[in-house]
């Protein structure tokens, strides 16, 4: 394809498309420090506060944005850091959604095809197959299949819902990086410099007696501490539990600070909101329906776990005594 045939503005909005890669290849550029610096800037912005839309609307700016993305992926491939990888996947997918929300259906189709998602449109509503939907639907109660119109293998979505599903597809794709062995000194230097911008505190610095937590809560904390993205309701459940367990905002912030999309203000607002509303801890049945229950603890609510555990241990000790007696 001739270089002039690429729609650079479109590709700068969605630099993860195969077409964008073709464009970069067509430039036949040497990977020099200036390109790597573009990638570094993109990573800095993504890690710190999320990516912002392109301001200068000219060919040079579009081209640099595409190159910045390509370079950032190269740096990420060499940077074995799951937190950064997930945080950037979120930043990139959120930026993409900003553009997706203004696209016409024809362009949305082009992007969806990249993820093997096909859809039809009728009266401004989107019809997509249930398997594609289930693969990429956000883990959020509003996107739970039970509440989504489903018939003969098709789900019916609004355009806004479709763009949210595409955002998830993009995020999932960008969390996977091709293994690259090429790690020049410059890349190593950039990784070293950027590493200093990551929060350094560790969860174990605050006093958590993890023995006291039920398995579902332990898992949520473990996921966050490994920077695995936890669903909205998982975070709400965790925040309610920690508030009830007597944790301060600061202590809760520390746990949430490892979330790939962590933002201090948003987290603080949500913790305060949950405190103000004094929500009850979700029941085990609710936790189960949200996909958060992972063990049969024989209690009806995670906050009752300790009491049930003590009761269970007490019963077991009686049984053990009985057995000994029989012998």
């Amino acid at each position: 394809m001739n270089r002039n045939e690429f729609n650079l503005e479109f590709l700068s909005h969605y630099p993860f498309l195969a077409e964008a890669k073709k464009y970069v290849d067509s430039l036949k550029l040497e990977l020099d420090d200036s390109i790597l610096e573009l990638g570094k800037k993109r990573l800095e912005e993504g890690i710190a506060s999320g990516l912002k839309p392109i301001v200068e609307l000219n060919e040079e700016s579009f081209k640099n944005s595409i190159l910045a993305y390509a370079a950032s992926r190269l740096i990420l491939s060499n940077w074995k850091n799951i937190y950064i990888r997930q945080r950037m996947a979120i930043a990139e997918s959120k930026l993409a959604r900003h553009y997706l929300s203004t696209e016409n259906f024809e362009n949305l189709k082009t992007i969806a095809e990249e993820f093997k998602i096909s859809f039809s449109v009728e009266k401004d509503l989107v019809y997509i197959d249930v398997v594609s939907y289930l693969k990429y639907a956000p883990k959020d109660i509003h996107y739970k299949l039970l509440f989504i119109p489903l018939k003969e293998g098709k789900v019916k979505l609004t355009k806004d819902q479709l763009t949210r599903v595409l955002e998830e597809a993009i995020r999932a794709r960008l969390e996977v990086l091709a293994p690259v062995s090429l790690a020049s000194n410059k890349i190593q230097q950039i990784i070293k410099e950027l590493s200093s911008s990551i929060p350094k505190h560790r969860i174990d610095q605050i006093k958590i007696n993890s023995q006291d937590f039920p398995p579902c809560i332990k898992k949520l904390i473990a996921q966050l501490s490994s920077s695995i993205n936890v669903s909205h309701y998982g975070r709400v459940a965790l925040a309610i539990y920690l508030i009830k367990a007597g944790y301060s905002n600061e202590q809760i912030q520390k746990i949430f600070s490892f979330a790939p999309d962590y933002n201090f203000e948003t987290t603080n607002y949500q913790i305060e909101f949950i405190r103000k509303k004094n929500y009850n801890m979700f029941s085990c049945a609710t936790m189960d329906s949200l996909g958060l229950c992972i063990a049969d603890c024989k209690c009806s609510n995670p906050s009752l776990f300790r009491r049930k555990l003590h009761l269970f241990n007490a019963q077991k000790s009686v049984l053990a005594e009985d057995e000994e007696y029989v012998k």
Binding site: V131, L134, K135, K144, L145, L146, D288, S289
Partner: peptide, 15 residues
């Protein structure tokens, strides 16, 4: 997760 969504749909869990 997707399979759990299918089970929840079939048994109306969390409706």
């Amino acid at each position: 997760y997707a399979r759990k969504e299918i089970v929840d749909y079939i048994d109306a869990i969390g409706l």
